[in-house]
Design a protein around this nucleic acid. Structure first.
Length: 421
RNA sequence: GUGGGUGUAGCUCAGUUGGUGGUAGCACCUGGUUGUGGCCCAGGAGGUCGUGGGUUCAAGUCCCAUCACUCACCCCA
């Protein structure tokens, strides 16, 4: 084989795509129960959009974006920036003060692929624009939990507050002072991080660093009054909805735009990729992108990760579409008669299969069995002569005769009746 | 970008100290029933042994390079 898919890019073939459909269908169902509307955006955007929203200094923008340098165009590495761009461009905030939107699609990041992480990956992204209400934070987390539960995926929900422009700078200083005291004990990555993004030192995986930051100041104790009240209200909301969660003062997000509430749905079954979904509030982002001062919150679910988890489960039953009727034509004459009949059955809504390869009846019966067909209609030279085709019920092996009519529509309707019993 | 592991049929894998690629399983096709599925049985088809060099009388096997896959780091959904 000469040409293969690119490294980090995957085909989703029949047999696997059914799981994707299950994930997507379940999500659409839940999202609509929560009154979310779908929005679809282009995959290409101006590079600047992502630099401004995600942050110039983040790894995503610095080294992971697929960019057409000469045109200053980038394939989106995440959905929120594009979604907000569309939201602002179309004045959706004017049409409705509070917008509840979701989008599903591919994202692109030039990272080294590994389990649960590809260069083209797929996210389901949910955003609520136009309200700072902490109840919405809780509602969103509850929706994520509901979706995962409905899929049969068990995760834990962890949350934190990152404060806001009022209180975070102060905390940052406090944390920096703490880090500086034990800089020598930290790993090289953390030494670097302490300069670029000190908060990230908190969620380093290195055991030595973990030990060091164990006693680190908690942002939860350095929130300003507004953020503190918001944080408490979110938790109250979660409790009201019986959503299980735990607080994680070490949880930091990688994107610059987050404020206040951040959360992750975590699993232990995906190796290094613990987060199947994550998000948070971004109250300054719309304004930063040139829109009005409008608060927002959202989260994304990684579809590859959800599908992997479903595949790991013992028995995931996929009900592959059952075939209603398999039409077995024997010989050229019979096949020629059956060909248009099959078309009319399909026009009438029956999932109909016909083999065009001139195989033996036995072979066609095997195929019918394999595609799980409920009925087989046998039409051979004999049947044509006698004017009676045979309809076999594959489940109970009963066979009945069907009068062959020159008018295909009449024959189709009599087949329809029998197949629908 | 860095490090480890792995590349043999569509898939899962055997392959000894180098000596002709496997009666292997699943899947596929045909037959066992001149026209009736699942189970069973028989047969068949399917391979540049990732690619390119090298060592050797001889390389799937040893050496080098390269590509791909994979896991992990970084980072993230």
């Amino acid at each position: 084989m000469k040409i293969k898919a690119l490294n980090g890019f995957k085909d989703i073939v029949p047999g696997e795509v059914e799981l994707w459909q299950k994930v997507e269908n379940t999500a659409r169902d839940i999202f609509s129960r929560f009154n979310f509307s779908e929005i679809r955006m282009p995959i290409l955007e101006k590079t600047d959009l992502f630099a401004r929203s995600i942050g110039e200094a983040t790894d995503i923008v610095e080294k992971e974006m697929y960019t057409f340098v000469d045109k200053q165009i980038t394939m989106r590495p995440e959905a929120t920036a594009s979604l907000l761009r569309a939201y602002i461009q179309h004045g959706l905030h004017v049409q409705k003060p509070i917008q509840r939107l979701f989008t599903i699609g591919p994202m692109f990041r030039h990272e080294r692929p590994q389990k649960g992480r590809l260069r083209q990956f797929h996210q389901m992204d949910v955003e609520v624009l136009g309200t700072p209400n902490p109840r919405v934070d809780a509602e969103l987390m509850a929706m994520g939990a509901m979706l995962l539960e409905e899929l049969g995926i068990s995760v834990s929900l962890e949350m934190n507050s990152l404060g806001c422009p009022v209180c975070r700078p102060g905390f940052r200083e406090t944390l920096l002072a703490f880090i500086d005291e034990r800089r020598d004990e930290l790993c090289d990555d953390c030494k670097r991080r302490s300069k670029t993004n000190p908060l990230r030192v908190l969620d380093c995986k290195n055991p030595k660093c973990r030990e060091q930051v164990e006693e680190a100041p908690s942002i939860q104790e350095h929130l300003c009054d507004d953020c503190d009240e918001h944080f408490a209200s979110v938790q109250k909301g979660l409790q009201d909805l019986d959503v299980e969660y735990s607080l994680n003062k070490f949880m930091v997000r990688g994107l610059d735009y987050y404020t206040r509430t951040t959360f992750e749905f975590i699993t232990g079954d995906l190796g290094a990729q613990a987060a199947v979904g994550a998000g948070g509030r971004y109250d300054g982002l719309v304004e930063k992108l040139g829109g009005p001062k409008i608060p927002g919150i959202g989260f994304a679910l990684g579809m590859e990760r959800l599908v992997l988890l479903l595949q790991q489960q013992e028995e995931v039953k996929i009900d592959s579409g059952q075939v209603d009727i398999f039409v077995a034509g024997l010989g050229e004459k019979a096949s020629e008669f059956a060909f248009p009949l099959v078309h009319i059955l399909r026009q009438n809504g029956l999932l109909t299969v016909m083999d065009h390869e001139g195989r033996s009846l036995k072979s066609q019966m095997k195929q019918a069995n394999k595609v799980n067909s409920r009925f087989v209609l046998i039409i051979g030279e004999n049947e044509l002569e006698q004017g009676q085709a045979v309809l076999r019920n594959m489940a109970n092996q009963e066979q009945q005769e069907i009068t062959i009519q020159s008018n295909n529509n009449e024959m189709a309707s009599s087949l329809l009746q029998r197949c629908q019993q």
